[in-house]
Nucleic acid binder design. Structure first.
Lengths: 189, 189
DNA sequence: CCCAAGAGTGATTGACCAGTCACACACCAA
DNA sequence: TTGGTGTGTGACTGGTCAATCACTCTTGGG
């Protein structure tokens, strides 16, 4: 039952809030083990209404993923701005720093990890490719770095995902230190 | 009902076969969306008996993961043998080639991707760390390469996972080529 | 021959969850 | 005031799945 006196919002604003909730919940528990009800609860909404706003669970996940990559590219752009028109390596380095700052809350990072694992759903695979394309093309054109340096940039980004997923930066043991060395880590929260 | 005249196997042999089936099925559909019944069917066994051989789904997944990393280290060892006592870079290069050959069927690769996404289950996270530790320490000690080269080796391995998950090596577009450049790709099957 | 220990299964249970539907309430324009 | 449109929900359905249990069948040693 709708609460007395509650002001209704436009469905667009609601959709937006639901995507925020979806980013957080899907990042926590992944695609398959996140029930729509968890997203709904976080958005302070009924599960049924989520299905009015999005045609299905997959398209909600894709919307969350799109927002995630949007923020990533935006962060890279900020990092590049910090480097001005320095040499390519310097620009890539600043982008890396900005990325590390962005994923300090772990949400955007874990969402990407979970998305990769859910890529057997074609729509999700498409969304990941789309996002990765934007990131790669932006890094390449904005930095002007040669292809192999761009590739390296992305490779170390993937390594960063692994390190954070497994908390290797706080893990005892030489081997963990080898993998984590020199990589800027997000804090625990 | 047990089939008439069927010879019973020892439970150890069965356990082994079930782990093989688990590697294949979990690699296909991941931890959360692979029902035990799928593993059971592939192992030509009843779902109920899987639970007699393993205390639960998680421990079966961990067993599959352990086997996966076992094979990875074994492959790296073979690759290193091919390089003999060449310089460290050469040894790491051969290890990379051997790894690419090993994951030609995609199973061992996808299993690692799915495991990373299921790392919120502590036992799974432990298993991944255990496996990664073995891989890292083996690569480092066998190659004798400096830490940053070992780190780089692992980083490009992660990039390889991304490329294969998304089929970037056969994807049209410059950006996909940038990421895939110079990386030895497994075939589709 | 007999029976104990091991191999293996069918049937069921209890929980969870995506998606649907009929309905309730709020706002606004005429 | 009225009714139409958009916002929002409770209750339900159909399906899936991990885990359990009581049970059967097989085999090999005494």
């Amino acid at each position: 039952m709708t609460k007395r006196g509650a002001t209704l919002s436009t469905s667009d604003a609601r959709r937006d809030a639901v995507v925020d909730a979806a980013v957080a919940e899907f990042a926590r528990t992944g695609f398959h083990s996140t029930p729509i009800s968890a997203v709904a609860t976080r958005a302070a909404i009924s599960p049924a209404y989520v299905f009015k706003l999005f045609p299905g669970k997959v398209s909600l996940f894709v919307a969350a993923l799109d927002r995630c990559y949007e923020q990533v590219v935006h962060a890279l752009s900020n990092g590049a701005a910090r480097a001005g028109d320095a040499e390519p390596e310097k620009i890539l380095y600043e982008m890396g720093g900005a990325y590390a700052d962005l994923i300090a809350d772990r949400n955007l990072l874990m969402l990407q990890v979970h998305a990769q694992s859910a890529a057997d759903t074609p729509e999700i695979a498409d969304a990941v490719r789309r996002g990765l394309q934007r990131v790669t093309e932006f890094a390449r054109s904005r930095s002007g770095a040669p292809d192999d340096q761009v590739q390296r940039f992305l490779a170390y980004g993937q390594l960063c995902h692994l390190i954070t997923t497994l908390d290797l930066d706080t893990h005892p043991g030489d081997w963990a230190a080898v993998l984590s060395a020199g990589i800027r880590h997000p804090g625990k929260n």
